[in-house]
């Protein structure tokens, strides 16, 4: 069984990002980049399935500029067998990524696709579901437990009301939530080994996919600053504020 894992290179989760002074975007020129934490969980899950003898090959995929090779090397160091970079210098929206992954899935024919539930930079929460729709596969988003039995995958999902268990026919798309597992530390010997593993760079144009975006970001702004609290003299003043300022009663 082949498992495809999509990973994204994002600003590291410890970095406090700043808006550029012209408000065109977030300033990421000289900040530390790393693998999206949710994608790290997806890679870990794929590697665990491989270690359990269920999956035979783990293929890590990323879309973006050549700089994304470093997160693919991280995925290889965590235990992926092979990596593919769909290279393009354009900025990609989730729909474009889903189309690229679909084109690659047609080529590679994976039985299971694991992706993180969302990226921590744009918080879109779309790619996995879009890929499932384009490929006409079933999906299980927000997975907190994944079991593969026969030709089915049983997934415990984190939904608003609690947990939901769904069973999907393979091939399927599963998006990883935070409680699925805790990713392993990448050891130095594994990093050295990962340098020898195959990493193909495929120009995205070769896949013949329309990656133009229907969205444009007009402005990026800081959120409004929270104003300080005030001490009120009595209940009447509080009621007055609740009625006329907050308008909640």
């Amino acid at each position: 069984m082949k498992c495809l894992v999509a990973v994204k290179r994002v600003v590291d989760y410890n970095v406090k990002v700043q808006v550029k002074s012209d408000q065109s975007d977030v300033d990421i020129a000289s900040v530390k980049m790393s693998m999206n934490p949710f994608d790290e969980i997806a890679v870990e899950q794929a590697v665990r399935l491989k270690e359990a003898g269920i999956v035979t090959e783990v293929l890590a995929v990323s879309c973006g500029s050549v700089a994304s090779q470093d997160v693919l090397r991280t995925a290889l160091a965590m235990g992926a067998d092979r990596a593919v970079l769909l290279q393009t210098d354009e900025s990609l929206q989730p729909l474009a990524v889903a189309k690229l992954l679909k084109a690659l899935a047609d080529r590679e024919k994976p039985d299971l696709v694991l992706v993180g539930k969302q990226a921590i930079d744009n918080d879109c929460n779309q790619t996995g579901q879009m890929l499932a729709a384009l490929a006409d596969w079933p999906q299980a988003s927000f997975a907190s437990e994944v079991q593969i039995e026969g030709g089915c995958v049983r997934v415990k999902r984190e939904v608003d009301a609690g947990l939901e268990t769904v069973e999907l026919d393979l091939p399927a798309v599963v998006t990883a939530d935070l409680r699925l597992n805790e990713p392993r530390y990448v050891t130095l010997p594994n990093i050295m080994k990962a340098k020898k593993k195959p990493l193909d760079v495929v120009p995205a144009a070769e896949l013949d996919v329309d990656i133009r975006s229907g969205l444009s970001v007009l402005r990026v702004a800081e959120p409004p600053k929270r104003s300080g609290g005030v001490k009120l003299p009595d209940i009447a003043a509080l009621l007055d504020k609740l009625r006329h300022e907050a308008k909640v009663i």
Partner: peptide, 8 residues
């Protein structure tokens, strides 16, 4: 940051 998006 608030992002305003519009379809082109």
């Amino acid at each position: 940051p608030c992002i305003t998006a519009t379809p082109s």
